[in-house]
Design a binder for these strands. Structure first.
Length: 297
DNA sequence: CGGCCCACATTTACGGTCAA
DNA sequence: TTGACCGTAAATGTGGGCCG
């Protein structure tokens, strides 16, 4: 990967609306295939780069990106220039280095600081996650159907801000255009997600505690677990939430958003755990087990 | 003759593989 | 990492024939 080729490509794109891969390949004296690979790399940094086919087609940056001064100021353009010059002078070598410089210049925090292994996720969940990730990085609007607790669905258009992992579950912090307010969406309840090319100005998500609207109501649940499950207890909970009892059992305190998942999760301990608090969850679980029993009798 | 449609050509992107 | 080669797809351009 020739380093400054990427920078120069961007610089050319900033000054020209469109350039074909062939043209670039001739300029840089590399093959067309290499140019396409470069574009792939640039795209991976979150740069809104796209290509169009046919006569008059070629490689370009999203016009909003080039024109919008808030995204790319003159000083940032100068940054690119100086980065180019310094690279020419130093002749540095490392793709990672290039990518992080690019990210810095463009103010895009899309580097691989986090890795999510979703090999055992369903295709739907993967799609939802990937679409949100792309839209968050590129700051483009998202459309999706959202199911609330009661199973009612509504079509939403949102400005994604952050993917958020809390209590073993993924959430999306976003600005909802339908409600004209900030909202937190549970990924599991999102369906028929669609990305768009419509850009938006990034807003800062308000402090959770400052806004009641977006507070996620979690329930304090206390369970007593058999010692045979110690591997699960220490694997899945924080040490400070685990109390080892004299009778060789564990008392675990957890805070979860109460929903189907939690009931299933608690039941997954089978007869090795017992819910101590709150009473209403106890009742729900008893009810479920009774119904399960009926199914098998 | 002018306008329309269709088939074909051209230009460009896109992804895979393999060897250097 | 790159280049060479392969096939494929999509958008656009072109030319010829048909029809009113």
């Amino acid at each position: 990967m020739q380093l400054n080729r990427l920078f120069e490509t961007i610089y050319i794109l900033l000054n020209r609306k469109n350039v074909t891969a062939k043209e670039l390949s001739e300029k840089f004296e590399v093959s067309i295939r290499t140019i396409y690979r470069d574009v792939e790399t640039l795209s991976a940094t979150g740069l809104p780069i796209y290509m169009s086919r046919g006569n008059g087609g070629g490689i370009s940056l999203l016009p909003e990106f080039v024109l919008n001064k808030t995204i790319l100021s003159d000083s940032e353009k100068n940054d690119i220039l100086s980065a180019l010059q310094s690279l020419n002078a130093v002749n540095a070598s490392s793709t990672n280095n290039t990518l992080s410089k690019l990210s810095t210049v463009f103010g895009i925090d899309s580097l691989n600081w986090i890795e999510v292994d979703y090999s055992d996720w369903s295709d739907t969940k993967k799609t939802v996650f990937e679409t949100i990730k792309q839209a968050t990085v590129n700051r483009t609007l998202l459309h999706f159907n959202y199911y609330n607790k009661n199973g009612d669905s509504s079509r939403r258009t949102v400005e994604p801000i952050t993917l958020w992992f809390k209590d073993k579950t993924w959430y999306l912090k976003a600005f909802c255009l339908n409600k004209d307010d900030f909202r937190v969406f549970k990924l599991n309840r999102i369906q028929n997600i669609e990305g768009t090319n419509e850009h938006f100005e990034k807003k800062d998500f308000p402090n959770i505690s400052a806004s009641k609207e977006v507070t996620i109501q979690s329930t304090k649940i206390v369970i007593k677990v058999d010692s045979s499950q110690s591997y699960r207890v220490y694997d899945e909970f924080d040490e400070k939430d685990i109390v080892k009892n004299d009778d060789d059992t564990y008392t675990v305190t957890m805070n979860f958003v109460e929903d189907e998942w939690v009931y299933g999760y608690l039941l997954s301990f089978g007869n090795y755990a017992k819910v101590l608090e709150p009473p209403h969850i106890k009742d729900i679980l008893v009810d479920r087990m009774k119904k399960s029993l009926e199914n098998y009798s």
